[in-house]
Every structure is written in C-alpha cells, then in structure tokens.
Write a protein that binds this DNA or RNA. Structure first.
Length: 591
RNA sequence: GCGCCCGUAGCUCAGCUGGAUAGAGCGCUGCCCUCCGAAGGCAGAGGUCAGGGGUUCGAAUCCCUUCGGGCGCGCCA
C-alpha cells in the first residue's frame, strides 16, 4: 500500500502506470519494474526527481536505454503532477514537478502534524531486542548506546507502520549471576559487621553494598547459618531484582522504553524449553554427538578433546558446528539463546532484530544459523552491532571511575550532559562505527554540536511565531489552533528558490522515514534533521541585511507573512517529528 | 591461522542497499550584525574514495586480492 504523503512513491506509481500503458498498447512487453526507483538526483539542476527505469529495463525490453527512456518520458509528459521531463546522460529520466505539488506537500505536512510521514498501514509484527545487559551491575556507556539505538530503531519502525514489540532478554541464568550472588553475599556479611576482602573474579563495585544491606535487613544473620546451596538462590534472586531495578532506572533516565522483559531462567523453569528445542533439533537431524577440532590461532590452555553435543550450524551457513552442552552437563548460553529465539518466533515474530555490542560480532552467524533451523527458514533475524563508545573530555580520554568498579556509568554521563545530548550524539553516527563521545563538546552551544544546532532550529521557529503577532494579531498561540490557521495559508506566495528548496526538503521526509526503517538505520533521521535545520538557518540569515524582503515576517504584507509562517510550521512539524523519533526534546526556546 | 566490521578532504564523519561533476562539520583564508535569536550565515582552498584486478550502460557502494586498524575464535554471557 503506497503511503500517499510520500511524493516519491506517488511518482513511482506514475512511472509504473506509464510502463503498464506501454505494455497495454503493445509497444513494450510486460516488464518487471521491481528495480525501478524514483529518487532525488544528486545535482539539483537535473530536476526534482530522476528515475532509472529505462536503464534497468533496457535488456528486458530489448531497447536501447535512451530510446526506451523517450517512450516512457512521452507518457509522463501527460501527467498532471509533472511539469517537465528530460532524458539525460545514459538514460536517466529527469522530472520537474509543478510548483503546486510542493505546496500541496507542505500543506499535507502541516495538516498531518505529528503523523506526517507515518505509515498507518497494518504492520508486520517485528520484535526488537535491545540492551539485554547482564543484571550484574549498573549500565555503562556502551550499554547506553545499544539502548538508545534500539529504542530509536523501534520508534522508527513503528512510525513506518510495523507492529513493534520492544524486548529485553534478562541473562539471569548461568555462571555470571552466581558470581553476582557470591559477591552480594560478601556485601551482606559486610553489612553484618564483618571485614571483607573481595577475591579476584568477584564483582568489586560499591553498587552491591545496598544489596548486602537489604539482605541483612531482610534476613538478619539467618543466611550466615546456611550452606551455600541454600543461600545462593535467595541472594541471587535478590541481587538480580535489585540490579534490574537499577537498570530499569537507568533506562528510564534515558527515556528508553521496553514492554517485555524476558527471563532466560524462565526457559528452563517453566518446563524445559531448552531441552525441548534441542530434542526437536535432534529429531530434525541438526544435533549430533561429535568432536570439534581445536581453534587455530590462540592456543587454549586446558584443551581437552572430548565428544560433545553439537548443533550442525555448518548446514545453515556457519563456519563450524557449535556446542550446546557444557562439560558439567548444563546448557551453553547458545543453547538457551536458540530456545529464546524460537520463543520469539512462536510468539508470532517472523521478523526479529537483535541489537548487540561489538564484542558479540563473532556470534552472529551461529544465531542466524540457529534461527534458520528452528523456524524452518521462515524466521528472519537481523543483528545490529553497536560499536564501542570512547568517552572523551575536550579531546582527552576520561578516567575510569573506581567507585563503580572500573567503568563510567551511563547514569554519570546522563547526569552531566543531559538525556538529549546523549541520545542525539549516539544516533549521530552509524551503529557499526566507533563513537567518540566528548563530554565537553556535547554541551557546547554552537554549530559544532548537532544536538544544539537542530534544537536551536526548532526554538528559532517558535521565536518567529512569537514575533509574528505584531503583524498577525490573530495568530493563535495554542499549537493546534495555530496549525489550523496556517493550514489555510496562501502557499502560492512561496516562490523564492530557498523557500521552494525547504518545501522539497520537507516533502522528502516520508521517503526518508521509509528508507531508514527498511535499512534499520535510525542515524539517517539524525542526519536529515541536521540538513533540514541547516537549510532553515541559512534561509533565516538570508533574510538579514542581504535580502530583507525574504524575511518570514513582512510588516506590510500579512498574507505573505501567513504563507511564510506556514513554511516555518512545516519545518517545525518535521523537526519535532524527527526529534521525537530519536527520543530527543524539541524545545520552544533555548535557555 | 580463520571469521566478521572498518579504511572517503589535514581532523571527525555522511554518502539514501549500483546512478550523472563524491558531500557536511571542524580547522585554514576572506567576508556579513542600526536586521524576525550572530547561539547564525556566505565565499574560497582542500580527494588516486587505502592499493591492485574484475563484474556492467555505470562502482566509494557488488566479487577477488594485497596492505593497514578493530572485535571475536569449545565447556563466558
């Protein structure tokens, strides 16, 4: 279903129609137009849009590209949206649309408001799993990047019309949470007055002190009388609870929302789903008992050649088969993870996205292999890797905080620079690129700081509304009323090249949303917003000494002023929408 | 040794899943405030898209290869 607010999609439909018409008249055979695209040309002098139809279809049509282009162009010339059609270069068809198309697009944007560019179609269910930090301590900055990325991606997919579920996988099983329990137990004894020393391999951070105190308050000395196998589950449950509460608090501070918190432990406790999954795979012939050759490079100290339970990952694109059981008879993390992804599929998610840290990159092939096996090829898993964050202050690496146990917590960073700065900067980079995060730069109020620059554009627009009341006393202050007022503006007054360019930029938003969602790349939204803000700022300054007649507010001409305010409203609409997708505030003034 | 990611202007990075003459910010040079927010803007200089092959109408983008960085490599999660 085409999104009618996407002007590029609309024009693509017209190209398809032209091809169908040519087929119907027998001029051309019926062609597969799936590779045909309509996109903005790099060089604006080529027009508003270009299509590659002729070049892509040349072989199938049995015509030379330019000859084919002429046939299509002839049809498009009759279209009521299109002003001029040119065939250029190797066979591009360049289109210039009629000015009223852009005015209509602007009016659509203003009227749609917060829903501009949103696809309201019935969406495919998609599960986005992100953060999934081990509940063994507070979140650090790297977790924060995954959290912000996943959250923004989920927002974006939802806006693009997918039916999104946001999920957190709690790794509350396995050896690490047992170490957590033992570390918390030491803090418990400390709370009871004992002097403790924390051995190597335990979690040393101060953040476990409150856990120890809570256990002491709840159980008194009782746990001290028990053997480990008795107190460990109690302490572990308490520690996990408190760590998850802390993590949820960190997520709330970042405005990251998730609705499903899925416990790894639940996979084995509510009937053994891990065992069931492995048995099912075994019946399919994907599990066998066998030996693995030792890895080449890094020699493993205590390598022991033994037979083990293996998943035939190589049958699904992985490099080696992967173990499902540890030597002590318990499941590997991988085994649980297979059952977990099967659970997602069974819950109706054929489309899944996992957001992982860079250190898990080597794990992608095997989990994708497992998803193929366990869903019979019907499930699709995209794994997005978020790269490291390097914390800097004015170009210098930030020292680690001892108090937190050797890392800078996410909370510390958010407290220092604010949620908006953290979120925007973490999205202003492709997810798989290393991110330098400079605590000094992100609070700077200058063009060098994109967070500020975009928000400033939004605030500046509101400043215009405030000042415009001198010329338009009846301009409503309340947002919805103002929008209704401006939606009726005489947009034919917007004829300046820069005004037209801004309208086109606004009209490009729905297409941007769809492309960013399809590619699972929220950073594109951040870059687009920066570009839009930049064009807006530039146009603003042009209305200074240089060409006062281009100002938004023209004292002598209320009708022109209304038209220009409508353009400002279009900018406001898109900036607010985009910032909202990124989870960043859109302030009406900067203070 | 193998796998994955990355290599684009002096620096930090985009480049819309293969499109036309590769872009932005910073830095550098020179400009613009009796003016709706100068917290801004304009102009200029700056490139062997790491190197080399290939695929095709067309490659920064896809394939092969070399070099250089990062991550990972039974029984951690």
């Amino acid at each position: 279903m085409a999104d009618t607010s996407n002007i590029f999609a609309t024009v693509l439909d017209r190209v398809h129609a032209a091809l169908r018409a040519l087929a119907a008249s027998g001029t051309l055979p019926a062609l597969d137009a799936s590779r045909v695209v309509v996109e903005p040309p790099r060089d604006v002098t080529h027009g508003d849009m270009a299509t590659n139809a002729a070049m892509v279809l040349t072989k199938e049509a049995g015509r030379k590209p330019r000859e084919l282009a002429e046939l299509i162009a002839e049809k498009l010339r009759a279209d009521e949206l299109i002003a001029t059609v040119d065939v250029a270069g190797p066979g591009f068809i360049n289109l210039t649309l009629k000015p009223n198309v852009w005015a209509d697009a602007l009016r659509t944007a203003i009227t749609a408001g917060a829903d501009y560019g949103r696809n309201t179609g019935k969406g495919e269910p998609v599960n986005v799993e992100y953060v999934s930090a081990n509940p063994t301590g507070p979140m650090h900055v790297g977790h924060g990047r995954g959290a912000v990325f996943g959250d923004a991606l989920a927002n974006l997919l939802e806006y693009a019309g997918r039916n999104v579920t946001r999920e957190y996988y709690i790794n509350d099983a396995g050896a690490q949470v047992d170490v957590l329990a033992r570390s918390a137990y030491l803090r418990y004894r400390e709370a009871l007055g004992e002097t403790i020393t924390i051995p190597e391999g335990f979690y040393p951070g101060d953040y476990l002190k409150p856990v120890g105190e809570a256990l002491a308050a709840e159980h008194g000395a009782a746990l001290n009388q028990m053997p480990e196998e008795k107190w460990l589950p109690i302490v572990r449950a308490k520690a996990i609870d408190m760590m998850m509460a802390s993590i949820r608090g960190d997520l709330a501070v970042l405005n990251v929302k998730q609705e499903v918190f899925f416990s790894e432990r639940s996979l084995t406790e509510n009937g053994d789903q891990v065992r069931a999954t492995i048995e099912w795979l075994r019946q399919q012939g994907h599990v066998y008992q066998g030996r693995l050759p030792p890895p080449k490079g890094a020699p493993i100290e205590d390598w022991e050649d033994r037979e083990q339970t293996l998943f035939r990952a190589t049958a699904f694109g992985d490099d080696v088969d992967r173990p499902l059981m540890k030597s002590d008879g318990s499941y590997t993390y991988f085994a649980s993870d297979i059952a977990y992804h099967k659970s997602k599929f069974d819950r109706g998610f054929h489309a899944m996205i996992d957001v992982w840290g860079a250190d898990h990159g080597g794990y992608i092939k095997r989990i994708q292999a497992a998803v193929k096996a366990v869903t019979g090829g019907r499930g699709e898993l995209d794994v997005k890797i978020v790269q490291l964050v390097r914390l800097l202050r004015a170009g210098e690496p930030v020292k680690m905080s001892k108090r937190a146990g050797d890392f800078v917590t996410l909370r510390e960073v958010v407290d220092e620079v604010g949620r908006d700065a953290v979120r925007f900067m973490m999205l202003y980079r492709k997810n798989d690129a290393v991110l330098d995060f400079d605590l000094a730069k992100v609070i700077e109020q200058s063009r060098e700081n994109p967070v500020f620059y975009v928000q400033y554009g939004h605030a500046r627009a509101y400043s215009i509304f405030r000042n415009a009341r001198d010329v338009l006393p009846d301009l409503p202050e309340e947002a919805a009323a103002r929008v209704a007022y401006l939606a009726k503006a005489p947009l034919e007054f917007l004829v300046d090249a820069a005004e037209l360019a801004l309208m086109k930029k606004i009209a490009a938003y729905p297409r941007l949303i769809e492309a960013a969602a399809a590619a699972h790349e929220p950073h594109r939204v951040a870059f687009y917003l920066y570009e839009l803000a930049s064009e807006f700022h530039a146009h603003w300054t042009r209305g200074g000494k240089e060409s006062p007649h281009l100002r938004f507010i023209i004292q002598s001409d209320p009708r022109l002023t209304v038209a220009r305010l409508a353009l400002v409203q279009g900018v406001v609409t898109v900036l607010a929408s985009g910032l909202n997708l990124l989870g960043v505030g859109a302030p009406e003034e900067m203070r």
